[in-house]
Every structure is written in structure tokens, then in C-alpha cells.
Design a protein around this nucleic acid. Structure first.
Lengths: 150, 150
DNA sequence: ACCAAATAGATGTATAGACATCAAATGTAA
DNA sequence: TTACATTTGATGTCTATACATCTATTTGGT
């Protein structure tokens, strides 16, 4: 049984809201653990993968660091450093923006696109396996999560 | 609107399962950001707070490091180092276990209990505010999360 | 009793999150 | 134009996660 009370050996919660917060934190750890194994062989982290996805979403147009930051799952993460690591591995290019020299244009390379394609299939397949819900339940979960933050 | 598509500016997802994974990662960041602000003034992190809660759950009985680890929300975290930090701040005591000298007995101090009491009220109130769901929806979310990991 | 395997916990290293601060470039108003 | 505020991105520091490795015990088989 996967009940949260057993998983963390806590008998009861103050109310369903507090239980939901703990349950979300625990489920997050469950998901992240599953993903880490996937990424390990490719020398890339889930966060770096996410940046590559954002860059590809631009269809060949360069993106600034702050624009990447805005689209990241974690708004507090540090896009600047993630881009630097991706550059060192040859998956993105960084060029000075001519119209505003404060900004930096970030562009995914062909190698980055290739890696992304490989990884994306693995991630998509893994996510379907890892989420032990029916299609309807998954839709319902999405609705609840969207509302939760509302 | 709090829809995940707008929050991270992604038009569509492969399927509801993949969307749910992204939605969970994003919602986790939303929750953690809310919690961080709460803990800041008390010189304690959410993870350290969680360890104190586990220790108090033992009703005065000491707990070993590995037992703490088993009950943590994140099974991959490092209970040993968190205990060390709590000890430096005087919130836990660490004594060698006489029956098995590999083990370490960890016990929450009176100062730790006092801090915990203050924090717990704040956290519980904050969680109710932060989870923008009805009671029924929160129950439903808990059921879906438990099943998701099943 | 002896030795190998298992266990508990500490520690080393890399990555990322949280947040403050800094420098450079740009915008704006007197 | 000059002075000041704002924006962009880089960087510094602390904390935590992820995972490998190490030491000190304890256990279990022979």
C-alpha cells in the first residue's frame, strides 16, 4: 500500500490540507528519484534537460537568460549557471545580444537537439509508467493541482 | 489563472501523465517557496524542521539516524548531516547507543520542542492558506497522490 | 575463535535551490 | 547632459540532494 501515513510512518495529520502538502513533498521525491536514474547515463541533470526543452520551444530563435528563468519549473533556480554548464558540454551557444548588451542570447545547438530528442522519448515513456493512474485520474489530478495554486 | 500551461508557457503536453509530472514539479516549487519564507526568521530549514517533528513523534524515546532517514519525506537526504546541524544549534542531543555502538541515539531537547511548537502552528496555518482547495478536494488529491505512487 | 558479509553512520564531491550582492548597460527625469 | 533608478546577468555563500566511499562495529557461518 502506498498510503502516505505508512510511507513516512506518521499516524495522522491535522487536516487534509496539511496532509496534502506533506503528500506533495513526498510524491515529488518519488518522481525525482525515478527521473534521476534516467538522466544519469547521459551526463545531464533534469534541470538542465528542462532548460534544453525551453530553448527548443523557441523554434530556432535565441532566448535570453531571464526568459528561460521565467519558464522554468522552479522560479528560484539559477538559469545563468545552468546555461553555463550546458555551454561547457556543447549543447547551447551563448552570444551577446546586439540590441541590448546587458542581455545574452542563448541558442540550442544541433548536439543539444539530438540529445534532447533521445532523452525526451525516454522521459515521456518513464512518466507514463511512473504515474500509476488512469487517464481520467491524471486529468483530475492536473485540475486539482492547478486549482491548488490558484 | 493558475493553469500549468500558462505558468511555464508551454502550449501542450504529450498526455495527462506527462502533464501531471510537470504539474507536480511546479506545484512543489510553489509550496516550497511559500514555506521558505516561514522558516527564514527562525534559523531553521524545512528539512531540519521535519527531522525535529520525527524526533518528537517518538515521545521522548531516542531515535537512530537510520530510523530518522526512513521517515523523512526525501529518502535520499542525509539525516546524519541534518542531525549534526540541529545539534550545533542545541535542538537535539546525540548519544552513543550502548547496545550497538554503531548506532547513535538522537533525542530532541526542550529548546527543540519549544521551537517546534512555535513553528508547527505557523506551518499548519500556512498550509491551510496555501492549499486553495475545498476540504473534499484536498481529500481527493491525497487519494490520487497515494494511488499515483502505488 | 575466526573471517567474510552486512550494517550504521560519517564524509567527500558534484549539482541545484535560495537569496544577497555586484557590475555593466539601459532608461528616465531634472 | 548629468544623476539616479532599473534591468540583466554573473557571482558568492549557505543549505540540501544524490550518490560513492570509508571506518567502525556487529552478525553469521565455519
Amino acid at each position: 500500500m502506498g498510503k502516505i501515513e505508512e510511507a513516512i510512518q506518521q499516524k495522522e495529520f491535522k487536516d487534509p490540507f496539511n496532509k496534502a502538502v506533506v503528500n506533495l513533498l513526498y510524491t515529488h521525491s518519488y518522481l525525482v528519484t525515478a527521473q534521476n536514474g534516467l538522466f544519469k547515463p547521459y551526463d545531464i541533470s533534469p534541470e538542465q534537460y528542462n532548460v534544453l526543452r525551453i530553448l527548443r520551444g523557441q523554434n530556432g530563435n535565441p532566448t535570453t537568460v531571464s526568459s528561460i528563468q521565467d519558464r522554468m519549473l522552479n522560479k528560484m533556480s539559477n538559469a545563468s549557471r545552468l546555461v553555463e554548464k550546458l555551454k561547457l558540454k556543447g549543447w547551447v551557444k551563448r552570444t551577446e545580444c546586439t540590441s541590448d548588451r546587458r542581455q545574452v542570447d542563448v541558442l540550442i545547438t544541433d548536439e543539444g537537439l539530438e540529445l534532447l530528442q533521445t532523452l525526451e522519448r525516454l522521459v515521456e515513456e518513464s512518466n507514463v509508467r511512473v504515474v500509476n493512474l488512469s487517464q481520467e485520474e491524471a486529468v483530475q489530478l492536473n485540475e486539482l493541482l492547478d486549482k491548488l495554486r490558484g
